[in-house]
Amino acid sequence: MSSSSWLLLSLVAVTAAQSTIEEQAKTFLDKFNHEAEDLFYQSSLASWNYNTNITEENVQNMNNAGDKWSAFLKEQSTLAQMYPLQEIQNLTVKLQLQALQQNGSSVLSEDKSKRLNTILNTMSTIYSTGKVCNPDNPQECLLLEPGLNEIMANSLDYNERLWAWESWRSEVGKQLRPLYEEYVVLKNEMARANHYEDYGDYWRGDYEVNGVDGYDYSRGQLIEDVEHTFEEIKPLYEHLHAYVRAKLMNAYPSYISPIGCLPAHLLGDMWGRFWTNLYSLTVPFGQKPNIDVTDAMVDQAWDAQRIFKEAEKFFVSVGLPNMTQGFWENSMLTDPGNVQKAVCHPTAWDLGKGDFRILMCTKVTMDDFLTAHHEMGHIQYDMAYAAQPFLLRNGANEGFHEAVGEIMSLSAATPKHLKSIGLLSPDFQEDNETEINFLLKQALTIVGTLPFTYMLEKWRWMVFKGEIPKDQWMKKWWEMKREIVGVVEPVPHDETYCDPASLFHVSNDYSF
Rank of each mutant, 00 (worst) to 15 (best):
E23H: 01
Q42W: 15
N61D: 09
Q98Y: 02
L95F: 09
M82F: 05
Q42F: 14
N49Q: 00
L95R: 03
Q76G: 13
L39C: 01
L29C: 13
D30S: 12
N51T: 14
F72S: 11
I54D: 11
A25S: 09
A46Q: 11
T92L: 00
D30L: 07
E22N: 11
E22L: 05
I21R: 13
W48F: 06
A65P: 13
N51R: 08
P84N: 10
T20F: 12
E35P: 15
E57T: 04
A25T: 02
Q76K: 05
E75D: 03
L95G: 04
Q24W: 13
L95A: 03
Q42Y: 14
N63Y: 06
L91T: 02
P84T: 12
N63D: 10
E57V: 04
L29M: 13
V59C: 04
F28R: 15
Q96W: 12
L39D: 13
N90V: 00
H34S: 01
T27F: 00
F28K: 14
N61W: 12
Q98E: 02
L91S: 02
Q76A: 04
A46W: 12
F72M: 08
E23V: 02
L73A: 11
Q102E: 02
Q76R: 00
E35H: 12
F72G: 12
Q102M: 02
L73C: 08
K68E: 13
Y83P: 14
E75H: 00
Q102N: 02
T20A: 08
Q76N: 14
K68H: 07
E37D: 13
Y50W: 03
K26C: 06
E22M: 07
Y50P: 13
Q60S: 10
A65D: 12
D38P: 15
E56S: 03
S19Y: 04
N63V: 04
T92W: 00
Q42A: 14
N90F: 00
N49Y: 02
W48E: 08
T27Q: 12
Y50V: 09
T92F: 00
K68Y: 12
N63A: 08
K74F: 06
I21K: 12
L79P: 01
Y83T: 14
E56I: 01
L73Q: 09
I21G: 05
E57W: 10
Q76H: 12
A25V: 00
P84D: 10
D38N: 09
W69L: 01
W69N: 05
N49H: 02
Q24P: 09
D30F: 12
Q60C: 06
A65Y: 02
N90P: 00
E37L: 11
E57F: 03
Y41V: 15
L79M: 00
N33Q: 04
T20M: 10
S19C: 11
E35N: 09
A71M: 03
E57K: 10
I54Y: 10
T27S: 02
W48K: 02
T92P: 00
F72N: 10
Y50G: 09
N64G: 07
K74E: 09
Q24A: 15
F40M: 01
K31G: 15
L91G: 01
K74D: 07
Q24K: 15
N61I: 02
K26L: 04
D67K: 04
E57P: 06
Q89D: 00
L45H: 14
M62Q: 09
D38F: 14
L45P: 13
Q76D: 03
E75N: 00
W48M: 11
N33E: 02
I21V: 05
L95W: 02
E75Y: 00
E22Y: 10
Q89A: 02
F40S: 06
P84F: 12
A71G: 03
K31M: 11
E57I: 01
A25R: 15
K68F: 11
K26Q: 03
N63I: 08
Q102I: 01
Y83L: 02
Q24N: 15
M82G: 01
M82I: 14
E37K: 15
Y50I: 10
L95I: 06
N63Q: 08
A46Y: 10
A25K: 14
T20W: 15
N51S: 12
F28Y: 02
D30Y: 12
D30P: 14
N64F: 07
F28E: 15
V93I: 06
N63L: 06
I54L: 09
T27L: 00
A25M: 14
L95P: 10
T20S: 04
Y83V: 01
K26N: 06
E35L: 09
I54T: 10
T20E: 09
V59T: 05
E35M: 01
Q42T: 02
K26S: 00
N63K: 07
K31W: 00
E56K: 07
Y83G: 15
N61V: 06
N61C: 07
D67M: 07
E37H: 12
V93S: 12
D38M: 15
N33D: 01
D38G: 14
W48I: 06
Q102C: 06
P84R: 12
M82R: 03
L45F: 10
S19V: 01
L45K: 14
N51A: 03
K68I: 12
N49F: 01
K74V: 05
Q42D: 15
P84C: 11
I54S: 11
S19E: 15
E56L: 04
F28C: 15
F72W: 01
